[in-house]
């Protein structure tokens, strides 16, 4: 797996072009994994390789794969690909990767040093699970109010937001994202209707909208259209289909709850 690619010692007789491309791709791969754009990833590989003596650089990237080949001034040739399985927004990591790439382009650090810093950036931990759970309570409460719910709705949405975050942080990572979100939204739907029924909340749909902001891919819907307009047609289309499917699955989960408890609510 790509986890042990980043250790510099395991390739003693590596050609310089291979090493250069490996380092550049390590940065680009982690950029994509932490929520960077396709354009930024391609740009990074191009700049780093050109700054270190590559004559010719070809990079192609979509959200799930990077293909790159370089030719050095002495005719040495290297080609590598990377597959990216999913991403999660982590802007601290994005920030430090960006500064590594900037230093590398300005030749302030060597390739080995860059490798060490990439490894360090990879293990950079951000906020703890407790903080994330608290914050998701604030988010879902705030958005329940934002979309026109009452104060009681906001409290109910905050409780459900906590529930969603707890389940998704302790769920196994290998689980299919669509299946995971189906389960989450079904549970949240049942709870929202149950809460309004027992008087803890006034409008179940406002509670649902508040909690849904945590899981709905509204942002990637927007960025996919941005990619389409900027000329990254392929990755835009991939992201668009992914986000529409995910939204449909989430809506389906809530609809299951509505079908089962709908008669009970009115």
């Amino acid at each position: 797996m790509s986890d042990n690619i980043s250790s510099a010692e395991i390739y003693p007789n590596e050609k310089f072009s291979d090493k250069l491309l490996r380092t550049a791709l390590d940065i680009a791969e982690n950029l994509l994994r932490s929520g960077g754009t396709v354009h930024a990833a391609e740009d990074t590989v191009d700049r780093i390789c050109k700054a270190h003596g590559a004559n010719h650089v070809e990079v192609f990237s979509i959200t799930s794969v990077i293909i790159a080949s370089i030719r050095m001034e002495d005719g040495e040739y290297a080609m590598q690909t990377r597959r990216i399985y999913g991403f999660s927004n982590n802007f601290t990591k994005l920030d430090s990767l960006n500064s590594i790439s900037r230093d590398l382009c300005a030749k302030k650090i060597s390739l080995d040093e860059a490798q060490n810093r990439i490894l360090k950036a990879k293990n950079e931990n951000t906020y703890s699970t407790t903080v994330r759970i608290l914050v998701s309570m604030i988010i879902s409460g705030a958005f329940a109010l934002f979309f026109g719910g009452t104060f009681l709705d906001a409290v109910a949405a905050a409780v459900l937001g906590m529930l969603i975050m707890v389940i998704s942080s302790f769920a196994p990572k290998a689980l299919n994202q669509l299946a995971m979100n189906l389960v989450l939204s079904t549970i949240a739907g049942f709870c929202a209707i149950f809460f309004t029924k027992i008087g803890f909340g006034d409008n179940y749909d406002k509670i649902i909208i508040g909690t849904i902001m945590l899981v709905i891919p509204g942002l990637s819907f927007g960025t996919s259209i941005r990619d389409l307009l900027c000329g990254d047609t392929l990755s835009g289309m991939l992201q668009l289909i992914q986000s529409v499917l995910l939204a449909a699955i989430i809506a389906f989960g809530y609809t299951i709850a509505l079908f089962c408890l709908g008669a009970w609510i009115v």
């Binding site: 929520g35 960077g36 754009t37 930024a40 927004n89 802007f91 994005l94 920030d95 960006n98 958005f143 934002f146 979309f147 649902i208 909208i209 849904i212 902001m213 709905i216 891919p217 509204g218 942002l219 819907f221 927007g222 529409v244 939204a247 449909a248 989430i250 809506a251 389906f252 809530y254 609809t255």
Partner: peptide
Amino acid sequence: PSIVFITASIIPLVPGGSLFYTMS
């Protein structure tokens, strides 16, 4: 990188609610 602030700031504009209503 500017994307860090752009992504977080446009969150209140994101059409999460209407995307959900469309699908449901």
